[in-house]
Design a protein around this nucleic acid. Sequence first.
DNA 1: TCACCGTCCGTACACCGTACAGAAACGGCC
DNA 2: GGCCGTTTCTGTACGGTGTACGGACGGTGA
Lengths: 223, 223
Amino acid sequence: MTVTEVVATAVRIADTEGMTAMSIRRIASELGLPTMAVYRFVPSKDRLVTLMTDRVFGETTLPRRPPAGWRAALEHAARLQWGLHRRHPWLAGTMSFTRPVLAPEGMRWTEWLMAVLDDEGVGPTEQLQLAMTVAGFVHGMGAKLETELEDEQHTGMSAAEWMAQREAAFAAAAGRAGERFPRLTRAADVTDDSEFDLDALFEIGLGIVLDGIAVRLGRGAGG
Amino acid sequence: MTVTEVVATAVRIADTEGMTAMSIRRIASELGLPTMAVYRFVPSKDRLVTLMTDRVFGETTLPRRPPAGWRAALEHAARLQWGLHRRHPWLAGTMSFTRPVLAPEGMRWTEWLMAVLDDEGVGPTEQLQLAMTVAGFVHGMGAKLETELEDEQHTGMSAAEWMAQREAAFAAAAGRAGERFPRLTRAADVTDDSEFDLDALFEIGLGIVLDGIAVRLGRGAGG
DNA sequence: TCACCGTCCGTACACCGTACAGAAACGGCC
DNA sequence: GGCCGTTTCTGTACGGTGTACGGACGGTGA
């Protein structure tokens, strides 16, 4: 029995059942240990959470040589990190944006993004601004994944199923809804639900952010 | 004693001490009530949280006539909502992006954004995509405010103070830090800390998102 | 063999949301 | 007024959380 096993167990529980299900007692019972025995390997729950964050960041390694072109490079990094959040929906909740030293692995990421922009001749301050905007976007969307996971636990329904069920109630009040939210109602009618899951919103948002950065770099949206 | 007073008390506690401090027992003691008496006014904590969300959304009203120009209009709406999150850092955590019916007030907001884009001749699906991108950005940044508030409670330091203190430890390990994160270190040197608080990051990100939308609308970044 | 010391973990405390049952207050009827 | 049924209120208790603490146990040196 090692720290690694304790952290791995914690990660597995948090991945599948959400962070609220991840408790010291639960880990202990999962490992067939007395509750307090967990503290042989980990000094506190806070520290355990930090170890979890470190561990999952180690999963994905950024390519040493970024793909050619700043846009492809930023896109690649953003998608890699999004994959991390998909696999570990609790991740965003454990990282502080304003206190980055607690997340050295996150800094490595930011440095990588800045290097890409450095090669494009962007100045130091703007490097950091743009890198944090991209990272902040991914982080912000990642936070929504945790909410969604816990909603699924809570209601026993996926977002799509839930929306479908709500559609009935929505249609019942359609008169009012159609009046109050005509454009929203219309867009919901002509659009497939799956076009608005978090993956789709991530892709749309990422495209817009990169277009915005292109403007800042004084280039066209093409990259 | 009314529901309103209970909700107001809950909001006040959550605003100043974070959502973790907001408990039924705490509200009761604040109002000089027996613990279980709170349930005379509110059926459950979940429902109370919904009422809190509704209440703070009612604080800010969107202008009936948006400012002239899509960019000014979206910017205005985004800043209004950011102000809401600033005053109530817990707000983002109570709203689900994927299950919007729980947040009718959020839908009103989205409808308003879509109306602005409608006037620009944007199609229904893209209206929703762009509106959700803006709303998602504000929401995502808003979520970081809660983390920051609870970190302040936890450490007794603001982010700036904390960074300053860390700078010492950072400088001690500067050799390694400078090697591992040369660009990050450099940018931290030449930039004032206050340029990277959440307000500043919000402004930078908003500008980039709006630039990106301008590209999508086939207009220049000017709006 | 015995004493000492370090490791391990059961118990306990202060919190949480809230189910439940008993007490108290109120209303209607004789 | 006296009595009973009903509703309203709330104290207690349950199962959950993180973890401080002290007692029990095992190993090691004298």
